[in-house]
Structures are given as structure tokens and as C-alpha cells.
């Protein structure tokens, strides 16, 4: 294992994050505060409780998930797309490193960035609502697994993308709608039965449900199903990346 290479890629990618630390931190704090103003204060004042929980607190896990999903995908996609775009990818491809090391470096950095943003949102949320965490270990585990698996997905998008429009396409058209429809701001039990069944086909439902369980000990779907969903998604992405590097698709002519 070429640990120096992994560390180099990781540090290089993280330095991009710290170069723009202002917008990296201010942006999620601002958007979280806005969500609390809109959903927590304006709408939340009409919805007193959901599943016995204060609405402001109820939306926090979904809010964190929504952000880390989009951030993981965007960060990882940009991380590998940008060297492709400016041509510096040659250096990574000609270095004595395997695809596993490349993935650990890029995906690890992207996952770290979104994990940090998730933590920042959690801290910000504590200023607005009382936020107990029933299962701290599982809360961190769900967050970490989600960051990693969606960063893997973002890595695939970054390799696939041929321009900046394509880079934004999947986060905007797939991830955000799935997160909004995945129970970020409501409980599945609030939906008509047909929509409850349809929602079970949305993978994000499992993530948000499992994450909400870690906070409030309440879930829309069994926790084991949530864990299996994340694990399955991660394995699927890893398999796809292995195939990409074996065939050289879009990276090695």
C-alpha cells in the first residue's frame, strides 16, 4: 500500500477545502439557519409535533442528511473531475498507485469535508432546538457511512462527467429530489399508504430513517434495513469503480 500517495492526495484535496474555508463553513451554517427559520419557525409553528417530537428537532437529521448527501457527491465529483478537466490527472495515472489508493485519497477527502459540514450543521442546530442523541455511536456511524458511500457515488459521476453541467446534473436532478422526498421534513406515516409504499423504493428514506433513529430512537423503517441499504449502495459503488479502473473507462485511453 502506497500510504504516502494516499496522504498526498488527501492533503492536496483537503487544502482545497481549507483554501475556501469561509464559504465551506458559512454556507452550510447559513442555509441551516434559513431552514430553521422557514421550516422550524414559520411552518413548525403550525406543526407542533411529529411522532411526538418537536418539529424543529425532527427535521435536523433530515437536514444533515440532505446536506451531506449533496456535499459528498459534489465534493468527490469535483475532486476527480477537476484534474481531468485541467489535465493534471496524468500525474495520478502515471504514479505507482493502485485504484484503491486513488479512491481512498479522493473519496476519503470528500467524505471528510462533508462529515465536517455535517458536524457544523449539528452544532448550528443545537442553537435553535434541544437535540438529544440516543445512539451517539450509530449517529456517527450512519453519518460516516453515508459520507463515504455517496462520495464513492460522486467519484463515479466525476469520472463520467465531460463538462461542468454534467457534474451538477446528478446532484441537482437526482440527489436533492430524493432527499426531499426521502422524509427529510416529514414522517412517512404522514403520507397516504400508496405514497408510503412508493417511498420505500427511495434509498434515501433508509438513510434518513436510520439517522433519525440514532437521534430519537424512532424510525420509519427498521434500522437493520437502513444499515443494509447503505452497505449495499457502498458495495455497488465500489464494484462500479473497480470496473472503471479495470477497463480504463473515461480515464485511460
Amino acid at each position: 500500500m502506497n500510504f504516502h500517495a494516499i496522504a498526498s492526495i488527501y492533503r492536496f484535496e483537503m487544502s482545497r477545502f481549507f483554501r475556501t474555508i469561509g464559504q465551506s463553513v458559512v454556507s452550510p451554517v447559513l442555509s441551516t439557519s434559513l431552514y430553521f427559520v422557514v421550516f422550524g419557525a414559520a411552518i413548525g409553528s403550525r406543526i407542533q409535533e411529529v411522532d411526538g417530537l418537536d418539529y424543529g428537532a425532527f427535521i435536523v437529521p433530515g437536514l444533515i442528511m440532505l446536506t451531506i448527501l449533496t456535499q459528498s457527491v459534489s465534493n468527490a465529483a469535483f475532486g476527480i473531475y477537476f484534474p481531468k478537466f485541467i489535465g493534471t490527472i496524468y500525474e495520478v495515472l502515471s504514479a505507482p498507485i493502485s485504484f484503491v489508493e486513488i479512491v481512498i485519497g479522493y473519496v476519503g477527502a470528500a467524505a471528510t469535508k462533508s462529515f465536517l459540514i455535517g458536524v457544523i450543521i449539528y452544532i448550528t442546530a443545537n442553537f435553535f432546538v434541544d437535540l438529544p442523541v440516543s445512539h451517539p455511536f450509530w449517529m456517527l456511524a450512519f453519518m460516516l457511512l453515508t459520507c463515504i458511500s455517496f462520495a464513492l457515488f460522486g467519484f463515479i459521476i466525476g469520472i463520467w462527467a465531460e463538462n461542468f453541467e454534467q457534474l451538477q446534473l446528478v446532484p441537482l436532478l437526482v440527489i436533492t429530489p430524493l432527499a426531499f422526498l426521502g422524509g427529510a421534513f416529514y414522517s412517512l406515516s404522514m403520507l397516504p399508504p400508496v405514497w408510503q409504499t412508493i417511498s420505500l423504493f427511495n434509498p434515501v428514506v433508509y438513510l434518513i430513517s436510520g439517522f433519525r433513529w440514532a437521534f430519537f430512537d424512532q424510525a420509519d423503517v427498521p434500522v437493520v434495513a437502513s444499515l443494509l441499504a447503505v452497505a449495499a449502495f457502498m458495495l455497488l459503488c465500489l464494484g462500479a469503480i473497480a470496473l472503471i479502473f479495470r477497463t480504463g473507462w473515461k480515464i485511460r485511453a
Binding site: 492533503r11 493534471t88 498507485i97
Partner: peptide
């Protein structure tokens, strides 16, 4: 990498090669 400093980009290259 346009926004990276010269020394950093060279450190990166050395590390990449283990």
C-alpha cells in the same frame, strides 16, 4: 493546479510516488 502554490504542488508529486 492553478490555485496551488509551487512548493505544495511539488510536495504532492513526491508523495504521489511514495
Amino acid at each position: 493546479e492553478p490555485f496551488e502554490k509551487v512548493l505544495n504542488t511539488i510536495r504532492f508529486s513526491r508523495g504521489l510516488f511514495g
